[in-house]
Every structure is written in structure tokens, then in C-alpha cells.
């Protein structure tokens, strides 16, 4: 086994465990994430409450899993929107080239020159906050990064001999683009997806932390971290538990991406 794949295995393991907990969390959590128990507030982590309880006596582990579910849902939707439209724009631009390609590439370049967080703030201030507005704002802002990658791959494959012969054999443009070129972009695309996922998690967490993202009663990891900061002195496990979940979520996917990159480099 190649050395670089150590990252792939560990990253894959962390991501698999986190995804399992999150998907399980949509159906079942040890306690109800919203059930209050005034008699049991600010309890330190124990076997009964894995991450302790918060200011209302709610079980933090259940809340974290629930919040991670929201964050996960947003990140997956954002990447799905960005990736789908990015592939569409990138493949058309890369395959056909010409003036539309130049214009769209310029637009994509100028959008990526700005931190997506700043542009998301502009969109949120115009549209208002909330779960679906965040998905919309971030989804749009994630298109250029995918479009760029797909475009450069398509431009590279467009003039290769196997594409030329496919064309001679009478394959239509559509078939060539999505049947012959697109699968070749998967290795690059896959690592772009993992990086994009991490950026989406980070952006969502930052925006909800600033309370311009997810609005109550929805809770995400970012908004929980912002709540927990007030109780840092009395219940540090609240912030530490929530932060640890964010870190694991991001770490898993960035190790996966590192492993994927090394794998494609080694052939």
C-alpha cells in the first residue's frame, strides 16, 4: 500500500464516523436536543451526559449532533449547488471556448478574488438571514471555484486524440462532454468537493456564530458555539465539545482531500 494513503484511511475513518453520527442524529439522539431539565443544568461530562449539559439542562451531545446535522445539511446542499452549476458552466466554457468563455472566466476570477465570506455577507444583508438564504448565498459563491477547475480540465482534454477520434466516429458534443471527458475530471473534482465542503462548513459556522446565519429555533454548530461562549467560565465543556465536533468534521474531510491528492499524484 502506498504511504500517502494513510491520510486517506484516517480521513475516511473520521468522516465516516462523523457522517454516521450525523445521519443517525436525524432519527435518534440519546436525549431530545430541546428537552430542558432545570434540575440538571451545567453538569460536567459524565457517562450519562457525554458532553455535559448546558444552561437549560439540555444534553450537549444530543444538541451537538443535531447542530452538526444542520451544518452538514447546509454544507452538502451548498457543495451540490456549486458543483452542479460549476460543472455545467465549466464544461461548456472549457469545451466550446470563445468569447463567452473569456467573459465567464473573467467573472469567475474576480469573484474568487474576494473572500466568499464577504460576498455572502452582502447577499445575506440584501436577502435576510435564514437556512435557505445561506444555502443560496454560499451555493452561488461556490460555483466559480468548481467552474474554474472543470473548465481547465475540459480545455486540456478537448484537443486530445481520443476526443478527436470520438468526434470522427460521430459522437455528439453532449456525449463527448459528459461521457468521455467528465469522468476524467473526477479525481480533481473529488478533492475540490472535499475542500469546498470544508469551506462551506467554515462559512456557515462563522455566519451562524455572528448570528446572521441560522436563526433560532434552528441550531447549528456556529450558533451553539456563540451561545456557549457566555458560559465559558462555568461550563467550558459546552464550547469545547461543540468546537471539537467542528474540528473533527473539517479534519476528516481535509485528510481525505490530502489523501486523494497524493493518490492521484502517485498515479
Amino acid at each position: 500500500m502506498k504511504k500517502g494513503n494513510l491520510f486517506l484511511y484516517i480521513g475516511g475513518a473520521i468522516s465516516a464516523i462523523m457522517s454516521f453520527l450525523i445521519i443517525l442524529g436525524y432519527f435518534w439522539t440519546p436525549y431530545s436536543p430541546t428537552a430542558m431539565n432545570v434540575g440538571a443544568k451545567f453538569q460536567a461530562p459524565s457517562l450519562e451526559h457525554l458532553m455535559g449539559t448546558d444552561n437549560f439542562g439540555r444534553d450537549i451531545f444530543s444538541r451537538v449532533i443535531d447542530g452538526a446535522g444542520t451544518t452538514f445539511f447546509i454544507a452538502v446542499s451548498v457543495v451540490a449547488i456549486g458543483c452542479a452549476l460549476g460543472i455545467l458552466i465549466g464544461s461548456l466554457c472549457g469545451y466550446y471556448g470563445g468569447l463567452p468563455d473569456i467573459i465567464l472566466t473573467r467573472i469567475c476570477d474576480s469573484i474568487t478574488a474576494f473572500p466568499s465570506f464577504l460576498l455572502a455577507l452582502v447577499i445575506i444583508s440584501i436577502m435576510g438571514s435564514g437556512k435557505y438564504n445561506i444555502i443560496f448565498a454560499l451555493g452561488i459563491l461556490f460555483i466559480p471555484s468548481f467552474a474554474r477547475i472543470v473548465r481547465s480540465e475540459f480545455a486540456r482534454y478537448r484537443d486530445l486524440n481520443y476526443i478527436k477520434s470520438a468526434r470522427l466516429m460521430g459522437a455528439g458534443s453532449f456525449r463527448i462532454m459528459f461521457r468521455h471527458i467528465l469522468p476524467n475530471t473526477f479525481p480533481v473534482l473529488l478533492s475540490a468537493i472535499t475542500i469546498g465542503f470544508n469551506n462551506a462548513v467554515l462559512s456557515e459556522a462563522s455566519m451562524s456564530f455572528l448570528s446572521i446565519g441560522i436563526q433560532p429555533p434552528d441550531a447549528s454548530l456556529g450558533s451553539m458555539l456563540s451561545d456557549s461562549q457566555i458560559y465559558l467560565g462555568s461550563a467550558p465543556w459546552y464550547a469545547l465539545g461543540t468546537g471539537a465536533v467542528i474540528i473533527l468534521l473539517i479534519l476528516g474531510f481535509s485528510l481525505l482531500s490530502e489523501g486523494l491528492q497524493r493518490m492521484s499524484k502517485n498515479g
Binding site: 459556522a205 458555539l225 468546537g243 474540528i247
Partner: peptide
């Protein structure tokens, strides 16, 4: 492997969580 692991670990911590840790 050591350098890459440490690097990946540090990159995965969001700045605002480092801030909260520093406060704590």
C-alpha cells in the same frame, strides 16, 4: 507524514474556535 499531519490538524481549527480556546 508528521509535518503534514500537524499542518492538517492546525488548518482544521476555525480561527474563532482558537479565539474561544485562547479566551478560556
Amino acid at each position: 507524514v508528521a509535518i503534514t499531519s500537524v499542518n492538517q490538524m492546525v488548518m482544521s481549527i476555525p480561527a474563532f474556535f482558537i479565539g474561544i480556546l485562547a479566551c478560556y
